[in-house]
């Protein structure tokens, strides 16, 4: 093989490698983000059973519950309380109400997010309703509950946490409709 072809092969391999590297980033990015504590949209530690950690009464974390829905998705979506104060390790329960305000069947999916990023891996969701597709019949009302607790080793600098849900419209004819995105690592 000539020197030129040899080098050509190496370079083509490098190009394919870099193209693959782009796709490898889908998981690399998630690994990197969790390593440095950046929040990403996919869930972590969704349901771990019991919290398991001891209740730390010396600390109180103020939690704010926020929701967002596009006006094009006519759902009344609210929590029964807008804020909580919890000790790390203690369970807290929030009830969310979903009301279909229209005469159409609505298909959607709740996506969960938390701020600050430091809290991202430091809580367990014992019961939750995110990352699965949902259906509301016309004028239907349903309730879902969120039960969560913070880990005892949550960064002491974190005293305020925001728990957020957004509802996104979904297409029930899509190939992946009904899929539940499993939490990673479990």
């Amino acid at each position: 093989m000539s020197r030129n072809s040899k080098l050509l092969l190496i370079l083509v391999a490098a190009v394919i490698g870099m193209f693959g590297f782009g796709f490898a980033n889908i998981s690399l990015f998630k690994m990197f983000c969790s390593a440095v504590g950046i929040q990403i949209s996919s869930p972590k530690d969704l349901t771990q059973g019991a919290a398991g950690t001891q209740i730390d009464k010396s600390r109180e974390i103020k939690v704010l519950f926020t929701t967002a829905v596009n006006d094009k998705l006519p759902i009344l979506f609210e929590s029964d309380k807008s804020r909580s104060s919890v000790h790390p390790g203690a369970l807290d329960e929030v009830h969310y109400r979903f009301v279909n305000l229209s005469d159409d069947t609505l298909y959607f999916r709740p996506v969960h997010s938390i701020f600050p990023p430091e809290a991202n891996k430091k809580y367990d969701m014992i019961k939750c309703f995110c990352f699965q597709d949902m259906v509301l019949q016309p004028r239907e009302e349903v309730n879902h509950v969120l039960v969560y607790s913070f880990h005892g080793d949550l960064d002491p600098a974190v005293s305020r946490v925001t728990m957020h849900y957004t509802l996104f419209k979904r297409d029930p004819t899509a190939a992946d409709w009904g899929r539940i995105d499993k939490p990673e690592g479990k």
């Binding site: 929040q39 949209s41 926020t66 996506v111 997010s113 938390i114 701020f115 600050p116 925001t162 957020h164 957004t166 996104f168």
Partner: peptide
């Protein structure tokens, strides 16, 4: 105010 923050869908930022 000296601030600017991108607001991303599905994600809460402060």
């Amino acid at each position: 105010f000296g601030i600017k923050r991108d607001l991303l869908p599905g994600r809460i930022v402060e």
